[in-house]
């Protein structure tokens, strides 16, 4: 069963095509790496698939929903976007509460604290994210991805940084992540 299907997806900024017709599909259960050199258009493609930017041409489906039904797609994917900032006035736990409410996930606070502990942020959950180190900022980003996803999820380019900085915690987290992911 195809969980993601991308058909001749294109994106142009002004009159310049940045993504010139991408086609691929991903089967259920498959771990799919999307590689390319710098500036190839990976982030632009991912931004289209996750509803951040709109495709210029072409189409895609995720979990059987088309790009016209992007709001329904948002309910079944977990995304760690390539964002340059966070809500710096929020603490880690406040972020998790906010995001879980955005996704209508019924998470208990103890579950959220447990997630933070598992990525090594125990004791830092009440600190404002603005005061975190780079690695710590990535650490609290990652758990959100897991429980935000029901069917598929997207790791943007931040993942390598995280693996490099916290290899052990990453493998622990992978082990605890649901099988269907």
């Amino acid at each position: 069963m195809k969980i993601i299907e991308v058909n001749n997806l294109k994106k142009k900024f002004k009159d310049h095509y940045v993504v010139k017709g991408v086609t691929f599909d991903v089967t259920k259960g498959e771990i799919f790496g999307f590689l390319g050199k710098n500036g190839a258009g990976k982030t632009t493609t991912m931004n289209m698939l996750t509803g951040i930017i709109l495709p210029s041409e072409g189409s895609f489906t995720i979990g059987g929903k088309t790009n016209q039904e992007i709001d329904q797609i948002k309910r079944i994917i977990g995304v760690m976007p390539d964002a340059a900032n966070y809500y710096y006035d929020f603490t880690a736990i406040e972020h998790l509460i906010f995001f879980s409410k955005l996704k209508n996930l019924k998470m208990k606070k103890s579950d959220l604290l447990d997630i933070l502990e598992r990525v090594g942020l125990k004791g830092h959950e009440k600190k404002k994210v603005g005061s975190y180190s780079f690695g710590m900022k990535k650490s609290w980003e990652l758990p959100r991805l897991f429980w935000g996803s029901r069917k598929s999820f997207f790791w943007m380019s931040l993942l390598p940084v995280w693996i490099r900085s916290q290899p052990l915690k990453f493998s622990n987290l992978l082990k605890s992540c649901p099988k269907k992911a």
Binding site: D71, K74, D82, Y87
Partner: peptide, 14 residues
């Protein structure tokens, strides 16, 4: 500008 909108727009309807 801060791109925090991306946290929102990947989760809820515009």
């Amino acid at each position: 500008e801060n791109q925090t909108i991306r946290f929102l727009v990947t989760k809820s309807a515009r």
